[in-house]
Design a protein around this nucleic acid. Sequence first.
DNA 1: GTCTATATCCAGATAGAC
DNA 2: GTCTATCTGGATATAGAC
Lengths: 176, 176
Amino acid sequence: MLTLFSEHGYFATSVQDISSESGVSVGSIYHHFGDKEGIARSLYHALSDQMSSRISWISARQGTAHDQCREIVKTLFEMAEEEPLVMDFMLYAKHKEFLPEEKSICSSKPFELMRTIVAAGMESGEIRRMDVMVASTSLFGGPIRMIVARLDDVLQAPLPHYLDEVWECAWKSVAT
Amino acid sequence: MLTLFSEHGYFATSVQDISSESGVSVGSIYHHFGDKEGIARSLYHALSDQMSSRISWISARQGTAHDQCREIVKTLFEMAEEEPLVMDFMLYAKHKEFLPEEKSICSSKPFELMRTIVAAGMESGEIRRMDVMVASTSLFGGPIRMIVARLDDVLQAPLPHYLDEVWECAWKSVAT
DNA sequence: GTCTATATCCAGATAGAC
DNA sequence: GTCTATCTGGATATAGAC
């Protein structure tokens, strides 16, 4: 299901395709999900929750904002390598096209968690005082762009290879 | 055409819709563009060229890499405010879904130009020696993320309002 | 709840006059 | 080159037996 959506896209994937691949009949699929959008919505929520829990697990461990954010970037890089299709679906799919009422990825839970950590970092004095949104995009925008590049196959080495260099840049951008 | 694609998406826009909106008959559209993909491809190339020329015009003017890059970010911010649909189509549309053979946005001409400027900045000593891709994503990743946030309506003020703060972060991330 | 068979609709694409 | 009318396939979704 994820494979079909990520590789061919939502619109190029028919419910018949999903039925064939999953071994579940078309009728059952509609019984469970209501309509085609329901399939995507269900998948999106599952993946979003999975991502959120990984991030909140990181932020739950004690540590500075610096360490937490670095760990998040590291985790995102690892996820992108291990499960590129998940990353692709979360980042690159234009959810607006087939999940119109869904909140945009920017304001989804994983990104909100990141902003919370950034705000805490400002309180503690690790991060310069500025607009929280600006700080968040500065800190994570570079890494995310690297992930997109990797998913688009315009990067030679795996992401972890660039981690130190990427993180140094990211942190310098907001550090006090 | 751009309006339809950007607001409803490529797949939710029928050739009939395009015909109605443009006043050109379906037959003529197919005569000109071959198929539906051809319409999107043609639009994409036109916008990509337009963006490239604005960027190369900036880099053609004398100036440091710092000034050139700042001017690019400023221009991107202004474009996003003046022509959000263009930005949306270029950045946020998943071209892979309907322009499969097209190069990804990352390796498209505008982004290549940016990397060229960054590489020059390293030669001149303005930018730290590092992987050019890392430097480029660090420098432009934050600003791009801000644009996405703005297009997704999760930003209160217009982009130029954040320019100084965003640019300070971006430049700090790669400056020597 | 799960299946098969079917209904319905509308998309992309074409034919062929002008 | 431009139009109208039409074809055709395949998509979403449902009906109804089991």
